[in-house]
Write a protein that binds this DNA or RNA. Structure first.
Lengths: 259, 259
DNA sequence: AATGACTGTTGCCCATGACGCAACATTATG
DNA sequence: CATAATGTTGCGTCATGGGCAACAGTCATT
């Protein structure tokens, strides 16, 4: 066959194409059938039929009849059940909420998805200054406390795979070399928590600690974040230990299906 | 062909099967290949290959090698972009948060998905700590203020389609007849807002108003909810108008793709 | 208004890719 | 240790997905 864009391990062509459509829509927001067809290098009609299949299950919806498509609310419904079946997130509300009130800052839970950090749950702190909602958003690991935590305890091979593609220098403090990054990860392993001090954007500070499963594997990161004016470097150690303690409470829980 | 479980309009068999797998996993939490195969009445090998395709794109993940499957975090990532591209939700935080502070109650945004009400965004009020727990959860329309709002302005045909399958009597106040329900919807159209007074569960009251798009179509519902001890029937009218006002602020915004 | 270029959708028919079979590798269970 | 589960994988066939082209609406230009 001509264009074998098939991802490794994915053996069902039409399904893979349908899922790539979802990814494209996630990036582009809205897209027409023709645009998708040319992107995937398939025929209009094929794309149209794939869209119908996705639409029938509510994963995409078209704006008007015979119009463009975008992702559908069915995805929200599916995603809602994801977090509840994940041990790191399910039943975590008591802990995260208590943490948010204790430190007065926004609390997040994040996992590693490929080489990006994906925020899967969030509690916004009492402050008036609301950061944007991060749920479902992903960021590179090298400039975030969560990214450092999720990378630090990986075996060397996976750690390389989890590195960012490009070491974008987002602020003066951003780490942009492999050696400095590895040194930072070693420090994270030693301390048991990670700090990102204005490394992703100015005036934005975060502190994260690992959530582990029953086998002591790091499966997620618990994170607090806020403006530099409230989270000062003198408080890093105290806050680090508080986050570590909360993360420990969330650790060691076995997986369960639906609860 | 033997078992034509194909949903109306879905013309690609393998894609439809893959999406049904996602729905099954959403219900069951975890499932093995064999269980899925018997559920869909397909062969183990087929199910296994479909799972591989889903896994390659991160929509499902298996717990251990050669183990069971569950929904994956890729769904969270996809769902995260859904709300931001929906006009009713994107940029709504300012309004919802202000409303939550004004009335001191939890604020939700919901949309209609088939014949269920799907909560797509939430701000919890009284504690001044925002969190998302209903996200992705759905409830029947006949016992909720959001459901009434989302049904009230539908054309008669769609209104029938949006009716619940079973009129479960969840509390003494639950509406359980079509005629009473239609009368209630007429009242909602007249008032411009809906009330659910302990109709889903005891001590739980909600008030909702419609969010409209630029063509005045109702695309979502804005809702406040809280215990009956705080939201008394004497306040329904005042609160109804407040919710209506906030909903108007969220209305009329054109769709945009990615912003 | 009428034209033209653009959408997305749909029957048709062929070949391709998805499916069922069965043998395999593993892990749980007695 | 044996038995019975599980999930995975080559293989061959036939259903089925996909390319073609005609169709039907929509928008922009004239």
């Amino acid at each position: 066959m001509g264009n074998s864009h098939l991802i490794e391990g994915s053996s069902v062509q039409s399904v893979d194409r349908a899922l790539r459509i979802l990814e494209i829509l996630a990036e582009q927001g809205e897209y027409g059938v023709t645009e998708i067809a040319s992107e995937l290098e398939i025929h209009k009609s094929t794309a149209s039929r794939l869209m119908s299949a996705l639409q029938a299950r509510g994963l995409v919806e078209q704006l008007s009849d015979r119009g463009r498509y975008r992702l559908g609310m069915g995805l929200v419904r599916l995603a809602g059940t994801v977090t509840s079946s994940h041990s790191a997130v399910s039943g975590s509300r008591t802990v995260t909420r208590a943490l948010a009130q204790e430190v007065g800052e926004t609390v997040n839970i994040a996992v590693l998805e490929g080489n990006e950090v994906l925020y899967v749950d969030q509690v916004i702190g009492p402050s008036m200054v609301t950061m944007r909602s991060w749920l479902g958003k992903s960021v590179p690991p090298h400039c975030t406390a969560t990214g450092k935590v999720l990378s630090a305890w990986l075996d060397p091979e996976s750690r390389v795979a989890a590195r960012p593609h490009t070491w974008a220098k987002l602020t003066p403090n951003t780490i942009t070399s492999v050696s400095a990054y590895e040194a930072e990860l070693a420090k994270v392993r030693e301390l048991g928590y990670a700090v990102a001090n204005e490394e992703m954007e100015n005036d934005f500070v975060a502190i994260a600690a690992p959530i582990r499963d029953e086998h002591d594997e790091v499966i997620a990161a618990l994170c607090i974040s806020g403006p530099a004016s409230r989270i000062k470097s003198a408080d890093f150690e105290t806050l680090g230990h508080i986050v570590k303690l909360s993360a420990t409470k969330l650790s060691g829980k076995p997986d369960f299906g639906r609860e």
